[in-house]
Simulated scan of single mutants.
Amino acid sequence: MSSAAQIVLIEDEPAIADTLSFALQREGWQVRHFALARAGEADLAAQAADLLILDIGLPDDSGFEVLKRLRRQSEMPVLLLTARAEELDRILGLELGADDYVVKPFSPREVAARVKAILKRTRASTPSNTEVNSEQSAAQYFVHELAARRVYFCGVMLALTPSEYRLLVALLAHPGHVLSRAQLLDALGDAAEDSFERTIDSHIKSLRAKLKLIRADLDPIATHRGFGYALAVS
């Protein structure tokens, strides 16, 4: 892989979390661990990740509820950890959008192998080389997987809200063209019913912050004062 995968682990049992983190880091992946659902969700909202490992039985919320909320805005791969061996629980997790599951007790090596398989499958279509030439069109920094509703920036999957996703896709569809706030508001579709043009500025600010976390030297969304925004091209 072209870069170390970013993995978020939400697991409240310290022994399991420590063992898993060690096994995953040995594979060369970076792990961000959280014991509570709300802490893990806050991290995912703030910065991108390539995969979520999610315990079903968390002290502050059900892992199923976390998965449902995540699927409203992201297709990030999810591996479930569960102490429940019942078939209905496993089926529910998969129906809610999980990519795989492991039943406790499990081998850390098995989890690592499953993570490797998921990452290989989901990152296969991303660029193999994340080094991009600054003279290239900004549109070439992005990969949009339409069916999965995922956008990659410099090879890293963006954790986007539905509104951010729609705005970015609208800009990607017209690189170099200035889209007014009214046009971008139209791109939000149903999500725009309770929105105002000034909220576009807030969404753009959030989008830029997420892009900066991946490439601080790039600012592909250009502001055209008095007109709107455009995906910059050289």
Rank of each mutant, 00 (worst) to 15 (best):
A4S: 07
Q6R: 12
E11R: 04
A15M: 05
D18W: 04
D18K: 07
T19E: 04
F22D: 04
F22H: 02
A23C: 04
R26F: 03
E27S: 09
L36Y: 06
R38E: 15
D43M: 14
L44P: 11
A45I: 11
Q47V: 15
D50Q: 05
I56Y: 00
E65R: 12
L67T: 00
L67M: 03
R69M: 10
E75K: 11
L79G: 02
L79W: 01
D89F: 00
L94W: 00
E95S: 03
A98P: 09
A98Y: 00
V103P: 02
S107R: 02
V111G: 04
A112S: 04
A112T: 01
A113Y: 07
A113H: 05
K116W: 05
L119P: 07
R121L: 11
R121D: 07
R123D: 09
S125T: 09
P127K: 08
N129L: 14
N129K: 14
S137M: 13
A138T: 09
A138K: 06
A139W: 05
V143S: 05
E145Q: 08
L146V: 12
Y152T: 02
L158P: 07
E164P: 09
Y165R: 14
L167S: 12
L167F: 12
A170S: 15
A170W: 14
G176H: 05
H177L: 14
V178T: 05
D190F: 11
A191W: 10
A192S: 13
E193C: 11
S195P: 08
R198Q: 13
D201Q: 10
I204L: 06
L207P: 07
R208V: 13
A209T: 07
L211Y: 00
R215D: 13
R215A: 14
L218K: 07
P220R: 02
P220K: 02
Y229S: 01
Y229H: 02
A230N: 02
S234A: 10
